[in-house]
Design a protein around this nucleic acid. Structure first.
Lengths: 200, 200, 200, 200
DNA sequence: TATGAATGAGACTTCATTCAT
DNA sequence: TATGAATGAAGTCTCATTCAT
C-alpha cells in the first residue's frame, strides 16, 4: 500500500514539475526564441535546477521538438474538427480559419514559437520585414483609395501579402520549376482575385 | 601626387576585399544560415584572415545587417522602379510582383538569407511548415475538384496560404486589436476573393 | 521479545539488501568499469532506489573499496589456506597459483574489477597493451622455434612478460633506486631462468 | 616576402605552443592520470587559454591518443632497433629489456601515463596491488632463505610476479580456453624455470 | 527504512572577438 | 593593412549526492 501511495505521490510530483517546466519553456521560448532561450533560463523560470531539466528532456532540442509537434498536432486537430462540421471547400476554409485564429488566441505563446519567430529569426530580419510590410500598407491603401482594391483592413492584407510572397519565394528558390514570370502571374492573379471563380 | 594615387589604389584594394567578403558571406550565409555561418568560414571563403574581417565589419551582426539592408534596398529599388513604369494600383502590383521574382531569380542566395531561412529557422520548424503546406495543398486541390476554387497551381497557392497566415498571426499575436473572428473573416474573404472588387 | 525478533528481522533484511547491492555492484562494475558504472545503474540492478544505496554506503568509493578489499581478502585467504597444506616455497607457490586461478574462475566478475580493468583503464591503453602482447607472442614463438626457449604456451607467456614489465616499470619509475641496466639484467635473468636455482 | 616571413613566424609560434602543450599534458597526465587531468589544468600548466587547447587537439581523447601512440611507437622503435644489433632470441630479449628500461628512465612521465596508471587506475586499487606485492616479497624472501629460490632482488621479482599474474588473469578471464589447473601449471613452471630450457 | 525527484558544481567544447607581429 | 594565434565567457550536459515524504 505504502509503495502504491508513494508511486502515486512521485508520479504527481513528476507531473507537476513537468507542467511547470513546459509552462516555463513556453514562456521563455516565446519571449526569446529558440537560440536565445538558454536551458538555465528555462530552469530558472520553472524554479528548478538545471539538472532537473534533463530528467524530463534529454536535450534542449527534444523539449523544443515536443512543444512544436504537440502544438502543431493540437492546432491541426482543432482545424480538422472544425472542417468536419461543414461541407464544401469554401465553408471548410471559413471554419478552419476561424478555428486557427481562436487557437492562436488561446495559445499565444505556442503560436509565437512556431510562427512568430519563424518570420524573422532575429531583430535584424524583423526590421526588413517591417519595411516591406509598411510599403505594402501604402500600396494597399493607395489601391483602396483609387477604388481598385476593396476596402479590406490594410494592415492585415499587407502582412498577408508579405507573408505569402516570403513563403512562396522561399519555396520557389529551391525548385527547378516555374519561371519568374509565371510565378509573378499566378501570385498577382491570386492576390487580386483569390481562390473563388468569377461569377462564383 | 603619388600619395593620391596610392590612396586610390588602397581604396580600390579595400573595395575589392570588401566585395570579396560580401560575396563570401552571401554564399556561406545562404548555405548555412545565420547561426551556422562562422566568421572563420566566411573569412576562409573570402580568402582572407579572420582578423581582416574585423577591419571591414565591427561585428558579425554588422555584416549581416549590411547584407540584409543592402539586399532589401536593392529589391525595393527594383520594385519601385518597376512601379514607376505603369499607372494604377493593380498594374503597379503586377509589375512589382514580376520585378520581385526576377530579382529573386538573379539573387537566389540573398533572397534565401532574407526569406529562405526566415520561414523556418531550423529543420524542426521546416517540418511543421511542410506539414501545413501539405494539408493546404490537399484542401486547395479538393476545392478545385469541386469547382469551388479556380484551377490555380495548388503548390503555389498552398505555400501562399501558409505564408500569409503565418505572417498575419505573428503580427496579430502582438496586437491588442481585432478579434479572432474578425481576423478569420478578413483572411477568408481575402483568400477567396482577393483584392479586386466584384464586377471589377 | 517481539522487539528482538523484529530487530533481527530488520538486520536480516538489511543484510539481504546489502548482499543484493554487492552482487549488483559486482556485475555492473565488472561490465563497465569504475568510471562508467553509475550509482543509478547499480541501484537499478539491485532493484532498490538510489537513495537506498546511500543507506548502505556513504559514497561510491566506499562501495568500491569494500568490494575490492573484500575480494582481496577472500583471495588472500584462499591462497593462504592452500599454502598451509604444503611445505616449501616452491610447493607453496604451486598451490597458491592453483588457488589463484580457481578463485579467479569462480569469481570472474570480481577479478575483472581488480585486474581486468586495471591493466588498461580505457580502450586506448588496451590497444597499446595488445600491441606489446602481440610483439611478445612473436618473440616468444621465435625463441621456441630456435629452441632457445622452452615450448611454453606463447600467449600465456607473452601476457606474463608484458604484465611483469608493466608492473615493474611502474614501480621502478617512482623509486630512487636501481639503475636501468641493473633492472634490465634482473628482469632478463628472471624471465629466462625463473626463481629456481640451477641444478635445483 | 612579408607573407613568407609571417607564415614562418606563425609556424614557429604554433610549434612552440604545441610543444608547451605537449610538455604540460605529459606532466599533468603523469601526475593525475587520464580521468583526473582536466583540460583546464593542462591549459593552465601550458600557460595558455582553454580555447587554445582546441586549436591543437579536437578533443581531450585526441591528445591522449596522440601521446600514447607516439610513446608506444617510440618505445617499440627503440626496442626493435636494439634487437637488430644482436642475434638469437635470448640476446634479443636481453638488449630489448635494456632498451626498455633506458627508454623508461628517459621518459618517466610518458611511461607513467602508459604503465603507471595502468596497473592501478585509482588509489583504491593501488592499495590492493601493494598488499599483493608485499605478500609476494615475503614469499620470495622466504624462498631465498630456504635456498629454494635464487637470491634475486625480492622487490623486483615480487612486482614482476604480481604484474604477470594480473595481466595473465585479465587476459584469461575473457578467454574460453585453458583450465585453471593448466594456467596454474604453466605459470608456476614459467615463474620457477623461466624461458630457458634445462641444460641450456 | 526506503524512495526517487531534485540538485548544482563541474566537465567539455565553441566561437566571436582581440592582439602582437 | 593583414594575419592567424590566442582568448575566455558562455553554453550544454552529467552524475554523485541530498532530501522531503
Amino acid at each position: 500500500m505504502a509503495a502504491v501511495v508513494n508511486l502515486t505521490r512521485y508520479q504527481q510530483r513528476r507531473e507537476k514539475t513537468k507542467q511547470d517546466l513546459l509552462a516555463a519553456a513556453r514562456k521563455v521560448l516565446a519571449e526569446r526564441g529558440y537560440h536565445n532561450a538558454k536551458i538555465i533560463d528555462i530552469a530558472a523560470a520553472a524554479d528548478i535546477g538545471v539538472g532537473t531539466f534533463y530528467l524530463y528532456y534529454p536535450t534542449k532540442d527534444a523539449l523544443f521538438l515536443e512543444m512544436v509537434e504537440e502544438t502543431a498536432r493540437l492546432l491541426k486537430e482543432r482545424i480538422d474538427e472544425a472542417r468536419l462540421t461543414v461541407e464544401g471547400a469554401v465553408e471548410k476554409m471559413r471554419v478552419a480559419n476561424h478555428a486557427f485564429f481562436c487557437f492562436a488566441e488561446e495559445n499565444r505563446d505556442l503560436l509565437k514559437i512556431i510562427f512568430g519567430h519563424g518570420n524573422a529569426f532575429n531583430e535584424l530580419l524583423r526590421t526588413v520585414y517591417g519595411m516591406f510590410v509598411e510599403d505594402a500598407v501604402e500600396r494597399v491603401a493607395d489601391g483602396i483609395e483609387r477604388a481598385e482594391f476593396r476596402a479590406l483592413q490594410s494592415h492585415i492584407v499587407a502582412n498577408a501579402l508579405v507573408g505569402m510572397f516570403a513563403q512562396v519565394v522561399s519555396w520557389w528558390i529551391d525548385q527547378e520549376g516555374p519561371s519568374a514570370s509565371y510565378m509573378a502571374e499566378v501570385m498577382t492573379d491570386f492576390a487580386l482575385h483569390g481562390l473563388t471563380p468569377k461569377q462564383g
